[in-house]
Structures are given as C-alpha cells and as structure tokens.
C-alpha cells in the first residue's frame, strides 16, 4: 500500500516558488492499477517521481507498507529505488547494450547474482513479455512496442511490488498501445504488482485503471473508481479532459 500524505514539491526559492505538487494526499492499494491523469504541467511526473524519490518532496510523508520513505538516504534510498520498477515514455533503453544486457542491468547493480544467474533471470522476464527471441539484438534494431516490452522486463527483473509507468504508451501507435496495455494488465494480475500509471490519455486510463485520480495544478481535483469518474465527472478539469478526448477520438 502506498499512502501519500500532505505532499508538497516546491521548485525555486520563495520569491518565485512554483508548487508542482500541492498538499496532495492519496492512497493506492496493493494490486491496484492506479491512474494519475491530467494535462501536461499538472504535476503528474513530479508526483510519481516522489514515490521512488527521484524527486525529493519538499514536505509531507509517503508511506510504503506503513514505512515512511521520505527520509531515506544512502544505501536505504538505493534499495528502495531498486524495489520499485519504472518505465518511461521514450523507453530509456541503453543503446550500447543488448536487450539481454539491458534487462540484467538492475541485477548487475546489486551484485547479488553471478552472470549466469542474472542472464537466466533476465531470460525468464523476456519470455514473460514475449520478446525472448530478441535477446541478442540491440535496442536500435527494435520497434517502439518491442523496446517498451524490453523496458518492462527490465523494470520487473528485481521482482518489485510496485511499478511506475510514466506515459508508457504516449510514443506508441494505437495498436501497439493496446498490446502494451494488455501486457501491463496481465502482469498486474499474474505477478500481483501494483501499478501507478501516469497518462494524459483517458483512453489509456479507461482501458486498464481500476481507480484514477485527476490532477490539476498539483492538486487532486477528483478521485475514485475509473468508470464512476468518467460517467459522472464533477470537476472542470475532468470535464475538459473528457471533452478533449472526444475531440481526439472524433478526429481519428
């Protein structure tokens, strides 16, 4: 369980401070696929980066399974990050490493397994995401969807209980998006990994999230069961997201 309590992230000094996240509280249950949606600049990326402390919160608490992580430093901080998987909009695969070496990367950092064990573990993950046949290839030889599969395998190789997805399908076409979302859904139910999904796309949220929170100017303006929020939007931010989404769908 992830509990975010009165979280603030403020950039800049007091003269021209910008509150990227402002007094935000949120609870994400184990096994959720939790969507955080909002337009760009709403603070989604900052919020999700506070969960693995890629961003240091200015104030507030984040509890993971009851333990406050916001003060973590040194080895404790690195161990926390290793225990949370993350995937990115542009895949962020290491270009000079093969697919297999990309997936073994998080294991190399921990120095707990020898090379053979690392590669065996990485192959299991590549099989899980259906891309084992590309193990010896380099990222530049793969399509976007294939690269994101590799990134998912890499994010899961440490056996995390939480996975953060930062606009994971925004760089992909509609069909590839659907297959990646399918995969995330399957991994969520097979591995019981909690997913925090950031997206600006309502279609993505509708497709996989069981709960969503709508973010606007660093604050949650609406939160609840996905269908409930979409069928009965309360806030202006949600309504305009839905209107924009209809416009986009109509154009396709």
């Amino acid at each position: 369980m992830i509990e975010i309590q009165h979280l603030y992230k403020i950039y800049g000094n007091s003269a021209d401070a910008h509150e990227a996240v402002s007094d935000l509280s949120l609870t994400i249950e184990d096994g959720d696929i939790f969507g955080i949606i909002g337009s760009s600049g709403a603070g989604k990326s900052t919020l999700v980066r506070c969960i693995n402390l890629l961003e240091q919160p200015t104030s507030g608490r984040i509890l993971i399974d009851g333990e406050d992580i916001t003060g973590f430093k040194g080895k404790q901080l690195l161990d926390l990050r290793a225990s949370i998987g993350m995937i990115f909009q542009n895949f962020s695969l290491f270009q000079q490493r093969t697919v297999l070496q990309n997936v073994t990367f998080p294991l190399e950092l921990r120095r707990e397994m020898n090379r053979e064990a690392r590669e065996k573990r990485a192959m299991e993950l590549l099989e899980l995401v259906d891309i084992a046949d590309k193990a010896k290839r380099y990222p530049s030889q793969l399509s976007g969807g294939q690269q994101q599969r590799v990134a998912i395998a890499r994010a899961l190789v440490n056996g995390p209980k939480i996975m953060l997805c930062d606009e994971a399908t925004s760089a992909l076409d509609t069909r590839t998006t659907a297959s990646i979302l399918e995969l995330l859904k399957r991994l969520n139910s097979e591995l019981r990994v909690t997913m925090v999904v950031i997206t600006h796309s309502l279609a993505v949220a509708k497709k996989i999230c069981n709960r969503i929170a709508v973010l606007s100017d660093g604050k949650i303006v609406e939160e609840g069961e996905t269908l409930e929020v979409f069928n009965n939007p309360q806030s202006q931010a949600t309504k305009s997201l839905i209107a924009y989404d209809n416009l986009e769908t109509a154009g396709e």
Binding site: L80, A82, M86, S92, F105, L164
Partner: peptide
C-alpha cells in the same frame, strides 16, 4: 540521453 541517467537512478544505481 538524460533519460538513461534517470532510468539508471530509478533502478538504484
């Protein structure tokens, strides 16, 4: 690519 640095950090490098 700064994205690669961030990715490495996210795995606890």
């Amino acid at each position: 690519d700064p994205g690669l640095i961030e990715a490495a950090q996210s795995f606890g490098a």
